[in-house]
């Protein structure tokens, strides 16, 4: 499976994950996953506990695989420190050296990575994340979003070709989120390979050229976002409708082309199963108006990522 749609298929992958599994005792966290990553932004998407972090940890060499291999730039990532000259990793946990200033942290990360022209590189990295004003404050005085940005600066200070970011937008406010997304697009446009994980569908949709869907430790789907989105659009949705005449509305909506099934829940609301929510959005108000029924509430019941993944895995 290639996660590099839109790039020449013949080009060597930046990362190759080959039949990778990881288990902890009898618990299988990642099961027989294979994919390639090419330049551009690849989103690793999955609900919490799906195995994304375990997979990313194996991709970065932090954790051993139970079976299978991970290579980056054609070399094994495990026990290969020299490879980290080309890789920048921002792990999920947000702990930092609180006693350091933001600038000292980035400088230390640069020193550890033997960055030439260190002070210039530190200025550049801090500028990229827009943290110049707060760079001399101690890290333990930062907000969560500021800490994340300074951690990203520490990840970028050696100008890596490959960036692996685990839930990088955690804690970012909307403005920081926009800045972050702009920065990642800019880095990807410069030819870098970026892998980022998220449990938020929209986040990955806005950023990633390619999506890897991980559910229950398995790769449920991969490819361009449009293909994934099309699969999502075709899945059946449950819609809950609260109105002043539920029995009358229930018998009327059964006749709509967009409705597959109708049930009444114990609270007197109607639950409609629809494979065409767009048409339902148009037909339902029209039907209510012509029947003289007042709609009080219309809400999707299963728009959670888990239900989307459940559908995709079963499909």
């Amino acid at each position: 499976m290639s996660a590099g749609d839109g790039t020449p298929a013949a080009s060597a992958p930046v990362i190759r994950v080959d039949r990778v599994s990881r288990w902890f005792g009898s618990v299988v966290a990642v099961s027989d996953i294979t994919f390639d990553v090419h330049p551009g932004i690849t989103g690793l998407l999955g609900p919490n506990g799906a195995g994304k972090t375990t997979l990313l940890r194996m991709m970065t060499g932090l954790a051993e695989t139970s079976s299978g291999t991970v290579t980056a730039f054609g070399e094994p990532v495990r026990d290969n420190p020299a490879l980290y000259r080309r890789i920048g990793v921002m792990a999920e946990h947000e702990t930092v050296y609180g006693f350091l200033s933001g600038r000292d942290f980035v400088r230390t990360m640069g020193r550890i990575r033997n960055v030439p022209d260190l002070e210039d590189a530190v200025d550049r990295a801090i500028g990229l994340v827009d943290m110049a004003d707060a760079q001399h404050r101690r890290l333990d005085t930062y907000s969560r979003g500021m800490r994340q940005r300074m951690r990203l600066a520490g990840t970028l200070v050696h100008d890596p070709e490959l960036l692996i970011l685990d839930e990088p937008l955690n804690g970012a406010d909307p403005r920081q989120r926009v800045h972050f997304q702009h920065l990642l697009r800019q880095l990807a446009a410069g030819g870098r390979t970026i892998v980022l994980s998220s449990h938020i569908l929209e986040e990955v949709e806005q950023l990633a050229d390619t999506v890897l869907l991980v559910v229950n430790g398995k790769l449920a789907a991969s490819g361009g976002f449009r293909a994934i989105r099309a699969a999502l659009d075709e899945r059946p949705y449950h819609v809950r409708i609260v109105c002043d005449a539920p029995r009358r509305l229930a018998s009327a909506v059964v006749g709509l082309a967009s409705v597959d099934a109708v049930t009444l829940d114990p609270n007197g609301a109607i639950v409609v199963l629809s494979r065409n929510v767009r048409d339902l959005q148009i037909e339902l108000p029209r039907l209510a108006r012509t029947s003289g029924i007042s709609l009080r509430r219309v809400e999707p019941l299963d728009d959670s990522l888990e239900s989307v993944f459940g559908y995709l895995v079963e499909g």
Binding site: L62, P81, A82, L83, Y84, V89, T95, Y97, I112, R113
Partner: peptide, 15 residues
């Protein structure tokens, strides 16, 4: 304990 060790091991420094 505080999971900052990865900052060091994700570097080209020999172990």
């Amino acid at each position: 304990e505080d999971r900052t060790l990865a900052n060091l091991t994700l570097s080209p420094l020999p172990r």
